[in-house]
Design a protein around this nucleic acid. Structure first.
Length: 561
RNA sequence: GCAUUUUUAGCUCAGUUGGACAGAGCAACAGUUUUCUAAACUGAUGGUCAUAGGUUCGAAUCCUAUAAAAUGUACCA
């Protein structure tokens, strides 16, 4: 519809140029946009405002001249000039009624598009190391990343979801030492407890299972605990597998799955880290100083050069990071998105700098980053400090158990990633009935309920007749609902392209509002067959869009509540 | 100090390529059930869009400065 109106305006512009009212060389970058208020019609165009200077006339005069030469269209019922010179387009009832036909025809594919054209895209998210259970921050990453993956899939990208984790190195060693200490009966603060050891209760649980000789399956491996306390390597393998197993269970409970799990250790074992280092040296962007090797990241926008190889010979974390991203590029992901917590923002410049230094023709802004701001958790009116080491935190599992998967997902995805999120557990739990997600789900359930009522009342629903009778949908409630429905495709498009899933959450609430208002304002199951058929079709279209949208959110669309 | 992000109604937040009088939910207030699920609806109340400048037909939105908050700023990952 937008494009249609744009064409009409473009035609009118040409006509005015021919008439000589406008200079032939002007090409204003005008927009056709949804109006905020119904008083201004459905779409508005600002072209007259932009032309005022070039034409040396008042905007309203230009608008009037444009309207005079605007080609007629059956989709447009009325055109008004308003305010400083906006041209407002009022769509005909038929134009909106026809959207119901489109929705019912497209079904589950309504709103989807092929903007991505099947190109490969990778989105990496969560990527928590297996040193403890997933917490709320990971939950936000999981909810946002998963929703983004769904959105991008819906606009035609070939999406691969990846989870990257470190199964070796200092932190994992610390984990193993912590478990070993627990297995020996040493508690935090006692002698023998590792410096900066992980103190959480789960460490004791892993130690107990290890001593008991239990087995665990994770990432395709079956690990049996040896129970030998002195075998740190065995403890490490068992601990990593145990925690990986827990994380997978958490994510499953949250409805999030991945296509690929990528291990940092494989970058070393496959020689990718070493190869990357050699390439960087060959590129001439490195130098040695103080016994360490540096990369001149300042040449690529960093504020100081970064150490690649420490004086003890080990590599800093950013080298495997670069090597990892090289594999993404080599695996053919022309587009890659990293969803991470904002506490990692400093890595962006370094990773991109490292990739640029390799001279591999990787685009400057690759990969994309979506950083979500921190989540602070409130409980009992106080902030719960998240600290793995201290062992005090709110796990994702806790939230799912207390608040529910649907509500947690909605809550974590409903706001802009840029803004910090306060998750008040007491509020979320005590007011879970007021959570917007139930409001949306209820709208869906209400349509299902109407459809059940049909049988009980012995009423029929002829869908084809409903389509033929769409012209009967003329009430204000119906109009508003159809307007809302027709927004879905453009909203989906914008949410996916801007990488902003909160737009979807917001939209679904608006749609539910329009439906609840309609439901209360008009009887659906009326005696008149034609009117009832038409209204039931409108309800079915609403049900379809709610279902499609909730699907992308990863939230279920219940038939009954 | 520097970097990133944030600052909109009592609270939690929308406001998307700069548009017409700033919008929701919650809380508080007044109503709506013999009739399709009241997990709903209707109405009224509530804002100097952090502050000060600038850009232009037009700014919550862009630019500059200031203030406040979060996070980062390792030869840790």
């Amino acid at each position: 519809m937008k494009d249609h109106i744009r064409d009409l305006v473009a035609h009118a512009l040409d006509a005015l140029k021919t008439q000589g009212m406008l200079p032939a060389d002007v090409a204003p970058a005008f927009v056709i946009e949804r109006t905020r208020s119904r008083e201004h019609g459905d779409y508005a165009c600002n072209v007259a405002l932009l032309l005022a200077k070039a034409a040396a006339r008042k905007p309203r005069e230009i608008a009037e001249a444009l309207v005079q030469v605007l080609p007629p269209s059956t989709d447009i019922a009325k055109i008004e000039i308003a305010g400083p010179g906006f041209i407002n387009f009022f769509l005909s009832a038929a134009a909106y009624q026809n959207e119901v036909r489109t929705i019912l025809g497209a079904g589950a594919t309504y709103g989807r598009s092929n903007i991505g054209a099947g190109r490969k895209l990778q989105i990496e998210f969560v990527s928590a190391n297996p040193t403890g259970p997933l917490h709320v921050g990971h939950g936000r990453g999981a909810a946002v990343g998963d929703c983004l993956a769904r959105l991008l899939g819906a606009i035609g990208w070939d999406v691969s979801r990846e989870y990257y984790y470190n199964d070796a190195g200092a932190q994992i060693n610390n984990l193993a030492l912590s478990v070993q200490a627990r297995a020996r009966g040493i508690e935090p603060e006692q002698t023998g407890w590792p410096e900066d050891g992980y103190r959480g209760h789960y460490i004791s649980e892993v130690a107990r299972a290890f001593l008991a000789g239990e087995s665990v399956d994770a990432d395709g491996q079956h690990i049996v605990a040896s129970g030998v306390v002195d075998d740190l390597d065995a403890i490490r393998r068992f601990a990593v597998a145990s925690l990986r197993r827990e994380q997978v269970l958490d994510l499953q409970a949250f409805g999030v799955e991945f296509d690929v799990y990528y291990l940092e250790s494989s970058l070393y074992s496959e020689g990718r880290v070493e190869k990357t280092v050699q390439q960087l040296i060959a590129s001439g962007h490195t130098y040695e100083a103080d016994g360490a090797m540096y990369l001149r990241t300042t040449e690529f926008g960093d504020d100081k050069d970064r150490v690649m190889r420490k004086s003890d010979g080990g590599y800093t974390y950013f080298v495997p990071d670069v090597a990892y991203h090289v594999t993404k590029w080599q695996r053919g992901f022309g587009r890659a998105i990293n969803e991470q917590g904002a506490d990692h923002h400093s890595t962006i410049t370094r990773v991109r700098a490292g990739l640029q230094a390799l001279n591999m023709q990787i685009p400057k802004g690759w990969p994309d980053y979506v950083l979500h701001q921190m989540v602070t958790v409130m409980r009992g009116g106080e902030e719960v400090k998240l600290s793995k080491r201290a062992g005090s935190y709110v796990t994702l599992r806790d939230l799912i158990d207390e608040v529910g998967c649907d509500a947690t997902r909605y809550f974590l995805v409903a706001r802009k990633v840029d803004s910090q999120l306060i998750f008040d557990i007491d509020l979320a739990r005590s007011q879970s009935n007021d959570n917007p997600v139930y409001y949306i789900q209820y709208a869906h359930a209400r349509v299902c309920s109407l459809q059940r009522q049909l049988g009980e009342r012995g009423l029929g629903w002829n869908r084809d007749n409903g389509l033929a009778q769409l012209a009967l949908l003329t009430s204000n409630f119906e109009q508003l609902l159809m307007v809302e429905l027709s927004r879905y495709p453009e909203m989906l498009d914008a949410a996916a392209q801007n990488l902003e899933p909160h737009m979807l959450a917001q939209y679904l609430r608006d749609l539910a509002t329009a439906f609840h208002a309609y439901y209360n304002g008009e009887a659906i199951l009326v005696a008149d067959d034609n009117l009832r058929d038409a209204r039931l079709n409108l309800c079915a279209a609403t049900q379809q869009v709610l279902h499609n949208g909730l699907d992308l959110l990863g939230v279920c669309a219940p038939e009954k509540m």
